[in-house]
Computed example of a mutant assay.
Amino acid sequence: MAQTPTTFQVDGTAICKKRMHAGMEVQQLAEAAGITASYLRKIERGDRPRMRPGAYQALRAALNANETELLRAPHDPPERK
């Protein structure tokens, strides 16, 4: 049985694009996912490339995203802006 990872390496750019495509502001998505807007901005900028499972699952649910579309590819380095 697969064990849940302790953190997920997320793709901030993909999260930002998905949020914008959904027509959501940072504050709206943060509230829907139960995280702070500051934390979400750091994720989208690539300052925080990892998320704990609970926060990641809540973000995925808020964006109606599949299991992998918000994850960074294993070989991709975190993107810094």
Results as ranks from 00 to 15, higher is better:
65 A>R: 10
19 R>Y: 09
44 E>K: 07
32 A>V: 01
48 R>A: 03
36 T>W: 07
20 M>C: 05
10 V>R: 12
34 G>L: 04
17 K>Y: 00
72 R>W: 06
36 T>M: 00
62 A>P: 03
24 M>K: 14
6 T>L: 13
18 K>L: 10
44 E>D: 05
25 E>G: 05
11 D>P: 03
81 K>P: 15
48 R>I: 00
57 Q>A: 09
22 A>V: 00
70 L>K: 10
21 H>N: 11
58 A>P: 01
46 G>H: 10
11 D>H: 14
62 A>E: 06
24 M>Q: 12
57 Q>N: 07
38 S>V: 09
27 Q>R: 15
49 P>M: 01
69 E>R: 10
50 R>M: 04
47 D>Q: 07
79 E>G: 03
73 A>S: 09
45 R>I: 02
66 N>I: 02
44 E>A: 03
19 R>C: 03
16 C>P: 00
5 P>R: 14
53 P>I: 07
6 T>S: 13
60 R>A: 05
19 R>A: 05
9 Q>S: 14
38 S>L: 05
74 P>L: 08
63 L>Q: 07
37 A>W: 10
61 A>Y: 04
27 Q>E: 15
79 E>L: 14
75 H>T: 13
45 R>D: 00
12 G>I: 08
75 H>V: 11
2 A>H: 15
74 P>R: 08
25 E>M: 14
75 H>M: 13
47 D>T: 03
45 R>C: 06
44 E>Y: 12
13 T>Y: 08
50 R>Y: 10
76 D>G: 00
28 Q>A: 12
38 S>R: 14
41 R>K: 15
74 P>S: 11
64 N>Y: 12
49 P>F: 02
44 E>H: 10
70 L>V: 03
27 Q>W: 02
34 G>I: 03
6 T>E: 13
15 I>E: 02
